[in-house]
Computed example of a mutant assay.
Amino acid sequence: MIKLLAGILAALKTIAVGERHYGQHKGAVLFAQGMEYHYQNYLLNYQGRGYEWQHEVVAYLNRAGQMYYYLISAHVGAKTKDIPSLLGASRFRMKHTAHRQIDAPRAGDYLADFSAPGITTIMPIRRFQAFEHRGRENYFPGLTIPFGSDSAEGAGDTRSFFLHHEHAFIMADVLRVLSLVATKHSQK
């Protein structure tokens, strides 16, 4: 993952050369570094007995949301189809870390506190492993929340966010977009 971060930082450095107002592109360095920082801390903490890993996931999602809005801004101009992994993380962020569904419900939100620490899902490290033989060291915890309607017509979709799985895809999306922008800037 460090190689992806290095590529992102190099692209941002190229893009920032023509920057007129500080912060358009240089500020995105903090977003990228923060995403990598929280990912690395997640890896150090996910096997712990507490919920330190969850704090890292929440912080990661918030930095990912900042990166998302930077990339779709007029300064960069990415389309959401160019950053599908980051779009998915941003949608999750809106339902879990930017606001809790119970505090600021939107149309169709479930009215329950899904940010509670017990609302987690596990993803086996080895998929063939039998569930009863899995110890805490054999899975990655993730966050799961429902998306969609809470109406009598039926339950909505549930989605999970597993940072260990999503990080490489998200960083690759960011790198791909920033590399294209850096190439355009260097040709000017």
Rank of each mutant, 00 (worst) to 15 (best):
N62L: 13
N62R: 14
R63I: 03
R63N: 13
R63H: 13
A64I: 09
A64P: 08
A64E: 08
G65D: 07
G65H: 12
Q66P: 03
Q66R: 13
Q66S: 11
M67P: 04
M67I: 06
M67H: 07
M67V: 07
M67N: 06
M67C: 12
Y69N: 13
Y69M: 10
Y69S: 10
Y70N: 08
Y70A: 07
Y70C: 08
Y70T: 08
Y70L: 06
Y70M: 06
L71Y: 02
I72C: 04
S73A: 03
A74G: 14
A74Y: 14
A74N: 15
A74M: 14
H75Y: 15
H75A: 15
V76E: 04
V76W: 01
V76Y: 01
G77D: 04
G77V: 05
G77T: 02
A78S: 00
A78E: 02
A78I: 01
A78V: 03
K79Q: 12
K79E: 10
K79S: 10
T80I: 07
T80C: 02
T80Y: 00
T80W: 01
T80V: 09
T80A: 04
K81E: 15
K81R: 12
K81S: 15
K81A: 14
D82W: 07
D82P: 03
D82L: 00
I83W: 02
I83E: 02
I83T: 02
I83V: 10
P84Y: 06
P84F: 05
P84H: 03
S85K: 11
S85C: 11
L86K: 04
L87F: 10
G88Y: 06
G88K: 09
G88I: 02
A89Y: 01
A89K: 00
A89T: 00
A89R: 00
S90G: 07
S90F: 15
S90D: 10
S90L: 10
R91T: 08
R91Y: 07
R91V: 07
R91P: 00
R91W: 05
R91I: 08
R93Q: 06
R93S: 01
R93E: 04
M94I: 11
M94T: 11
M94C: 11
M94W: 10
M94Q: 14
K95M: 09
K95G: 15
K95T: 09
H96S: 08
H96P: 05
T97W: 03
T97L: 04
T97D: 14
H99N: 05
H99S: 08
H99V: 04
H99C: 04
R100S: 15
R100F: 13
R100D: 12
R100N: 12
Q101A: 11
Q101W: 02
I102V: 15
I102W: 01
D103W: 08
A104E: 12
P105T: 06
R106H: 11
R106I: 03
R106D: 12
R106E: 14
A107W: 10
A107K: 13
A107E: 13
A107D: 13
A107Q: 13
A107Y: 14
G108D: 01
D109Q: 00
D109S: 00
D109T: 01
D109R: 00
D109K: 00
Y110M: 08
Y110D: 09
Y110K: 09
L111D: 03
L111S: 05
L111N: 08
A112N: 11
A112S: 13
D113R: 06
D113P: 07
F114A: 07
F114E: 09
F114I: 04
